[in-house]
Amino acid sequence: MIELDDVRVRLGQREVLCGVTARLPERRIGVIGANGSGKSTLARLLNGLVLPTSGTVTVLGDDTRRHAARIRRRVGFLFTDPDAQIVMPTVAEDVAFSLRRHKLPREEVQRRVTDVLDRYGLAGHADHPAHQLSGGQKQLLALCSVLVLEPEILVMDEPTTLLDLRHSRLVADVLRELPQQVVVISHDLALLADFDRLLVMDEGRIVADAPPPAAIGHYRKLMS
């Protein structure tokens, strides 16, 4: 469960979010809107990467301003560019990096890493350097490194923008199977078509909040 209460975010001189209020209990939530409309800031509020200038963000019952560390453990975040998210030289090392604080025995780390890589078709690449993967595989690796922690909420900031059609579909399929709550920022309307709820953002405000067909219609009108 995510709750935003009159959230304002000011970065320097600019007000990026101007009073956003929303209760988001649905399992799959999409956020669409023009570039610079505040979508990415909204996403970053949900795991405490950005803190509200005023108002409160409550995620899984915790205020992000007070419990950022705990929230980051429970909320996974997938960025647009996997190259900015993969921090270890090889595939398996990067997934294992996520587990570093769990103080698990080496075999257990190994097992979890193998499991998650296996699930997303990267098992054969475990010992390969990350830069040898294709763009789509890199995004899957970034996803594996997030999912291995079994987050309760997954926030994705334009996860398919850099991917080809095949890999976008793959990510869409993975999304459909995920049991946890997901919040996806995207310009990829096909990806969001079967979501439970879409928020349309414009100039730092939510201007429409509806199931996909109505929200997408509103968005198209806004863009024309």
Binding site: R44, F77, F79, A84
Partner: peptide
């Protein structure tokens, strides 16, 4: 830009906590 995005991702992956 890449470095600062990477820094943000490290925070998201719990490096600060």
């Amino acid at each position: 830009r890449h470095a600062d995005a990477l820094g943000e991702a490290l925070s998201a992956r719990g490096l600060d906590d």
